[in-house]
Each structure stands twice: as C-alpha cells, then as structure tokens.
Deep mutational scan, measured.
Amino acid sequence: DRIFMTRTEALEFLLKAHQTAVDKIGHPSHKQTPADHAAIEALDRLLLDVRARRVDQFQINASAAQIIVTD
C-alpha cells in the first residue's frame, strides 16, 4: 500500500509516531530495551531527513504502508 502526503503531513505523522514511541518507553509498566531507543533514534533521523528534503518516501516498519511525500 502507498499513502501520498504533503511534506507537512508527513512531518506531523512522524512527530506523532515519535511521541508514541517516547510515551511507550516512558510508561512505568514497559521495560526499556535497546531496540526501543534505536527506534526513536531512527525516527529522529527520518524526521530530519524528511524536513531537509533528503527523503521523499519512507516506511516506518515492514508491515506499514509506504509513505510518499509530495510537494
């Protein structure tokens, strides 16, 4: 599946995904793992790359739809 978004929409989408990941590892019942921190770092890099126009398409994980940034 493909989803087309403007750059602004894609950045909002990534910010929400980032916040969800941060909230998940901050929850008291969740045991933090290196994979959790790696996922947040990957989202940080992706946010910067989309914002800087170095990336025009991405996929958060293998089961997610491919996001295509349109400007």
Rank of each mutant, 00 (worst) to 15 (best):
D1E: 14
D1C: 11
D1N: 03
R2V: 15
R2D: 04
R2H: 12
R2Y: 11
R2Q: 11
I3M: 10
I3D: 01
I3S: 03
F4P: 03
F4I: 06
F4Q: 04
F4N: 03
M5V: 02
M5D: 00
M5I: 02
T6M: 03
T6Y: 02
T6W: 02
T6I: 02
R7P: 02
R7N: 03
R7T: 04
R7D: 01
R7K: 03
R7Q: 04
R7E: 02
R7S: 03
T8S: 14
T8C: 07
T8R: 14
T8W: 13
T8F: 09
T8A: 14
E9I: 03
E9F: 03
E9A: 09
E9K: 07
E9Q: 13
E9S: 04
E9L: 05
A10G: 01
A10Q: 00
A10R: 00
L11F: 04
L11W: 04
L11Q: 02
L11K: 01
L11E: 05
L11R: 01
E12K: 11
E12S: 15
E12L: 12
F13Y: 15
F13H: 05
F13N: 01
F13M: 08
F13V: 05
F13I: 05
F13T: 03
L14R: 00
L14M: 01
L14C: 01
L15T: 11
L15I: 10
L15P: 00
L15V: 10
L15H: 09
L15K: 14
L15N: 08
K16M: 10
K16S: 07
K16G: 05
K16H: 08
K16E: 07
A17G: 02
A17Q: 08
H18A: 06
H18C: 05
H18N: 02
Q19L: 06
Q19Y: 04
Q19A: 11
Q19I: 09
Q19G: 05
Q19F: 05
Q19E: 07
T20I: 14
T20N: 13
T20V: 12
T20K: 14
A21I: 14
A21W: 13
A21V: 10
A21R: 04
A21G: 02
A21K: 04
A21F: 13
A21E: 08
A21D: 01
A21N: 03
A21S: 04
V22Q: 08
V22C: 05
V22T: 10
V22A: 07
D23P: 02
D23M: 05
D23Y: 03
D23N: 12
K24L: 12
K24W: 07
K24E: 09
K24T: 09
K24N: 09
K24M: 10
I25G: 05
I25Q: 05
I25N: 05
I25F: 10
I25V: 10
I25A: 08
I25Y: 07
G26V: 10
G26H: 15
G26M: 15
G26R: 15
G26L: 14
G26I: 10
G26A: 12
G26S: 15
G26W: 13
H27S: 14
H27L: 12
H27N: 13
H27M: 13
P28A: 11
P28S: 11
P28E: 10
P28M: 08
P28N: 08
P28L: 09
P28V: 08
P28Q: 09
P28G: 10
P28Y: 02
S29R: 06
S29T: 11
S29I: 06
S29E: 13
S29Q: 10
H30A: 07
H30I: 07
H30E: 08
H30N: 09
H30Q: 06
H30T: 07
K31L: 13
K31F: 13
K31Q: 12
K31H: 13
Q32R: 10
Q32N: 13
Q32E: 13
T33G: 09
T33H: 08
T33F: 06
T33N: 13
P34G: 07
P34D: 11
P34S: 09
P34A: 13
P34H: 09
P34Y: 07
A35T: 07
A35D: 12
A35N: 10
A35F: 10
A35Y: 10
A35E: 14
A35G: 10
D36E: 09
D36A: 06
D36Q: 07
H37E: 11
H37F: 14
A38C: 05
A38D: 10
A38I: 10
A38R: 10
A39M: 15
A39E: 14
I40Y: 03
I40H: 05
I40E: 02
I40L: 12
E41P: 02
E41Q: 12
E41L: 11
E41H: 12
A42H: 13
A42W: 14
A42R: 14
A42L: 14
A42F: 14
A42V: 12
L43A: 01
L43C: 02
L43I: 13
D44S: 15
D44V: 15
D44C: 09
D44W: 15
D44T: 15
D44N: 15
D44G: 15
R45W: 03
R45M: 07
R45D: 03
R45A: 08
R45N: 07
R45H: 07
R45K: 13
R45C: 04
R45L: 07
L46Q: 01
L46A: 01
L46T: 02
L46M: 04
L46R: 00
L47F: 09
L47C: 04
L47D: 00
L47V: 07
L48P: 01
L48T: 13
L48W: 05
D49L: 15
D49T: 02
V50G: 00
V50L: 05
V50S: 00
V50N: 00
R51C: 06
R51I: 14
R51P: 02
A52L: 14
A52V: 05
A52I: 06
A52F: 14
A52W: 11
A52C: 11
A52G: 07
A52M: 14
R53N: 12
R53I: 03
R53V: 04
R53Q: 10
R53F: 08
R53C: 09
R54Y: 05
V55K: 04
V55W: 01
V55Q: 04
V55H: 01
V55L: 08
D56A: 10
D56W: 15
D56H: 15
D56T: 15
D56C: 12
D56F: 15
Q57R: 14
Q57Y: 11
F58T: 00
F58I: 03
F58S: 00
Q59S: 09
I60Q: 02
I60F: 05
I60Y: 04
I60D: 04
I60T: 04
I60K: 01
N61H: 13
N61M: 10
N61L: 08
N61S: 13
A62N: 12
A62D: 13
A62I: 09
A62P: 14
A62W: 06
S63D: 11
S63M: 12
S63R: 11
S63T: 11
A64H: 09
A65C: 07
A65N: 06
A65G: 06
Q66C: 08
Q66S: 09
Q66R: 13
Q66Y: 15
Q66G: 03
Q66N: 07
I67D: 00
I67T: 01
I67S: 00
I67M: 03
I67A: 01
I68H: 06
I68C: 05
I68R: 03
I68L: 05
I68W: 10
I68P: 01
I68K: 04
V69Q: 01
V69E: 02
V69A: 02
V69T: 02
V69D: 03
V69Y: 02
V69I: 15
V69H: 01
T70R: 13
T70A: 06
T70D: 11
D71S: 06
D71K: 05
D71C: 05
D71A: 07
